[in-house]
Deep mutational scan, measured.
Amino acid sequence: MDALKSAGRALIRSPSLAKQSWGGGGRHRKLPENWTDTRETLLEGMLFSLKYLGMTLVEQPKGEELSAAAIKRIVATAKASGKKLQKVTLKVSPRGIILTDNLTNQLIENVSIYRISYCTADKMHDKVFAYIAQSQHNQSLECHAFLCTKRKMAQAVTLTVAQAFKVAFEFWQVSKEEKEKRDKASQEGGDVLGARQDCTPPLKSLVATGNLLDLEETAKAPLSTVSANTTNMDEVPRPQALSGSSVVWELDDGLDEAFSRLAQSRTNPQVLDTGLTAQDMHYAQCLSPVDWDKPDSSGTEQDDLFSF
């Protein structure tokens, strides 16, 4: 819950932080000083300027060897085509990944977070970031790969997607708890209302004896509580940590079903599988986004697919 609360507080303090972009060759504004600060901008989305290598189908939802083989196929196909790589912007948030063309600003792909089953910074092609997700059109699994400016960037994108998945799962947990509370309150309110109706004398007997209905007592009954809980029953509950912020979080049926399955089948359902080692994760978390744009010590960066 700490990640969720800190993310909400950060967004309320400075929503404009989320509009910064990394990996864009110096076009961005001043960047936060450390990885923790940038992680807090996830709610509205972190932007990464990358190059799209392509996509291939895979048979399993996750796995280092599986993704490595898929990336190898994608890279080989991209090299064989001889075409310049498409420059894209990857927007990562707890909602998922939005992929747009840098030149036309046209939407290429919009992947809900619950469809993503794996992401990684490839070991062999260490400047490549990739994720595996279920197609929104059918049940097939797709591996999408992107060329980053350097290994640090690939690791940073991988960690960002993993963190977005974690925050999304926490949102789901909060929403589920809130819905259970509202359902319980609604049920209790309905029981109270039913009890009051059972003990209320029939209207005919009131008229016969000349008694008047006590409207004041009726007004004191917990009807307002019942209506408050039943009027918006169809509205999706939102985490309290975000009250007053500009973010509107809505959970669709697909996300609810997917996270429910994860909660039942996995020990740590909030953790998205990645190909990063503990050492890689520690190294990337210690980086400032400013470091992502620094040239690798191995030599001059080449803006070309064939540089790796």
Rank of each mutant, 00 (worst) to 15 (best):
E180G: 15
R261L: 02
N102E: 08
L107R: 15
G24R: 03
D304T: 08
V75A: 00
L47P: 10
M55H: 07
W22Q: 10
R9T: 14
G190A: 14
G45Y: 10
G25I: 12
T158S: 03
E44V: 14
D198H: 12
L215I: 12
T160W: 13
A162G: 04
V174C: 04
G25H: 08
V207M: 07
K5I: 13
D183Q: 03
L305C: 08
S135D: 14
L287N: 01
K294M: 12
P222R: 14
F306K: 00
V167F: 15
A208V: 12
K87R: 09
K179T: 14
A221M: 07
E235K: 07
Q187M: 02
Q197F: 04
S93P: 01
D214V: 09
T56S: 15
L147A: 02
L276E: 12
D214S: 06
Y52A: 11
H137L: 12
S6V: 11
T149A: 10
I132Y: 02
L215H: 14
R13W: 08
K204G: 14
E180M: 06
I116K: 00
Q302D: 02
G45L: 09
T267K: 07
L11N: 13
N138G: 15
A121P: 00
E235P: 08
L193Q: 12
L159T: 06
V192C: 07
V207F: 03
D253R: 13
L53F: 01
A145R: 00
M281Q: 05
M46N: 14
L305R: 09
E235A: 14
K176H: 10
D37G: 12
P237F: 09
A18T: 15
W22P: 11
H28G: 13
T160V: 11
E170L: 05
G194K: 06
N229V: 04
V290W: 02
E180N: 13
E217M: 10
S21K: 15
S265V: 08
D183Y: 15
I98V: 15
R151I: 01
A121K: 02
T89F: 09
L57D: 07
K19V: 10
G8V: 01
P61T: 12
I97G: 00
D183G: 13
L251T: 09
L50P: 06
S243C: 09
R95V: 15
Q187W: 02
L272I: 02
R196W: 02
L99R: 13
T200C: 03
V92N: 00
G45E: 15
V207L: 07
Q285C: 06
T225A: 06
T200I: 09
H144Y: 15
L141N: 15
G45D: 05
S93K: 15
A219P: 10
Q106G: 05
F171E: 02
D303F: 04
P32K: 14
D234N: 05
L212D: 13
A219K: 04
R13G: 14
T209N: 09
A76P: 03
V111L: 09
S307M: 04
L272E: 03
S307H: 08
A162D: 03
A68Y: 01
T267S: 07
I98F: 06
Q197R: 13
M233S: 07
Q240N: 14
S21Y: 11
P237Q: 15
C143Q: 13
S186Q: 07
S49G: 15
R266S: 06
L223W: 04
L203W: 09
R95N: 00
L57Y: 10
L305T: 11
Q163P: 00
A18S: 14
K51Y: 00
I71W: 00
S307L: 04
Q136Y: 11
T41P: 11
D304N: 08
F171C: 15
R151H: 12
L203Y: 13
L66F: 11
L50C: 01
Q86A: 13
E33W: 11
R261E: 06
K83T: 13
P94R: 14
D256S: 02
W35V: 08
P201D: 03
I113Q: 07
P239D: 08
K166F: 08
K84N: 07
S67F: 11
T160N: 04
F129S: 04
K204W: 05
G24A: 14
L213S: 04
L251Q: 14
K220T: 04
L276V: 15
S205D: 09
S288H: 04
R151V: 13
Q60N: 10
L203A: 09
R27V: 12
E257D: 08
F171G: 07
L212M: 09
D280T: 08
A241Q: 06
K220M: 04
R29D: 05
G210Q: 15
L262I: 10
G26N: 08
S298C: 03
K84A: 08
W172Y: 03
T104R: 06
A156N: 07
R261F: 05
L255I: 10
